[in-house]
Design a protein around this nucleic acid. Structure first.
Lengths: 225, 225
DNA sequence: ACCTGAACACCGTTCAAGT
DNA sequence: ACCTGAACACCGTTCAAGT
């Protein structure tokens, strides 16, 4: 990123909290959350960094604000369908939104207190469950099921793990050692990369499988009560 | 944190990568990951910040290193049990470890490439599945199921959402507006906080419910093939 | 009411210089 | 071989001063 950093001083629209937050989201979308600094945000808005403090309490306030913007983009499903259909729509819509803003999950998890848009989102999740016949107790369990990380963390990293090394013979040697030490991972990497499918694995398909498995599990919780 | 920052210059044990990483983990455990800086770490080790670069490439290298230390603490289950028992043990052990280092999940997710200890962990997960009769395909799906975030993010934040406001009448008024706007969330907060249980919700119990639901779902995937 | 210059207390990192 | 002082290019934030 050694390119000359030129910025149009930007249209003289009045600086508002909304304009500030939208610019912050754009900055994070383009360069990742670590590229969002007060100085750079000011620059993008044609203003000095200190001016931002007239519209926002501090940087934490900006992070709360952009979480609210992004979570507010999640489309809530129309009423009138069965709970599973509605939940599927809502969760997939959330996924769509968060794939557009890949920095967002990490920032959401770093918030100390839920923002209004998060309240709205959880209210929607709970509403679908309660209207679908879940008791408050079971709905509470369901929320934990959908929010828990079984492995302790998310493993999107795993998907990129298969890359061609620098030199081919070097790679082969390393692959040999890998195969000895991690036979099951090697086996799976082989199967996934030039397996029966199209090569590589389809994250959307995998996600749908995971989602259906969990929704089926919730259905069983519901009817058991 | 305005207390005088006194640091014993620390025993004159030779500075090594291992000692450096263990100190870094301690720093993160005590003050959160944002309290881990080169200068503070050097201070804790009785050395200037620049000296660290003799044992570590840069800060990213330190983050890779402390991930490896922490993930290496996860206890792998003994062989010889059925897959569900083993997986349950492994996942609960991972949870125990990560609860001791609450900063770890976020740092793990920020790694560009999996560290050796992560390989070992995933290899263990896969081994349990394959030896338990899962095909490579179904084991791959299972890995995605256990690694996916259904809601798009984790909601530990939600648990702390019920706190006494500052003034009681202020709180009551706010609660009234809340109840109008978010009836289902209000209902659940009530049920959870002074419900039939002990008050508040038991995260360990909720996690166990979620885990069993998912393991049962995986069992169904396995036998369907 | 909003913006700014200067300053403060921090960051990660490099590099020539010390032992 | 390892450590350090000084420096560089950054951070977030405050505050008195400008319009």
């Amino acid at each position: 990123m050694a390119t000359a950093r030129v910025r149009r001083p930007v249209s003289r629209a009045p600086l508002t909290r909304g304009r500030l937050l939208r610019a912050a989201v754009q900055l994070a979308d383009k360069g990742g959350i670590e590229s969002l600094s007060m100085r750079r945000l000011g620059q993008k808005l044609g203003v000095e960094a200190m001016s931002l403090y007239n519209h926002v309490r501090d940087k934490e306030d900006i992070l709360d604000g952009i979480v609210d913007v992004v979570v507010g983009e999640i489309e809530l499903p129309p009423a009138g369908n069965d709970w599973k259909t509605s939940m599927r729509q809502l969760v997939l819509s959330a996924r769509q939104t968060l794939l557009r803003h890949r920095w967002a999950p990490g920032v959401i998890e770093s918030r100390k207190t839920p923002t209004p848009a998060l309240f709205r989102y959880f209210e929607s999740v709970l509403g679908i469950l309660r209207r679908g016949g879940f008791s408050t107790d079971i709905a509470h369990h369901a929320l934990h099921v959908m929010g828990s990380r079984v492995l302790g963390f998310t493993q999107e990293l795993f998907d990129d793990a298969e890359q061609a090394g620098p030199s081919s013979e070097e790679a082969a040697l390393l692959a040999g050692r890998m195969a000895k030490q991690f036979p099951y991972m090697t086996e799976m990497a082989m199967a996934v990369s030039h397996g029966e499918g199209l090569g590589g694995c389809d994250d959307d398909v995998e996600f749908a499988i995971a989602l259906d498995l969990i929704l089926d599990g919730l259905e069983k919780l519901r009817t058991a009560a």
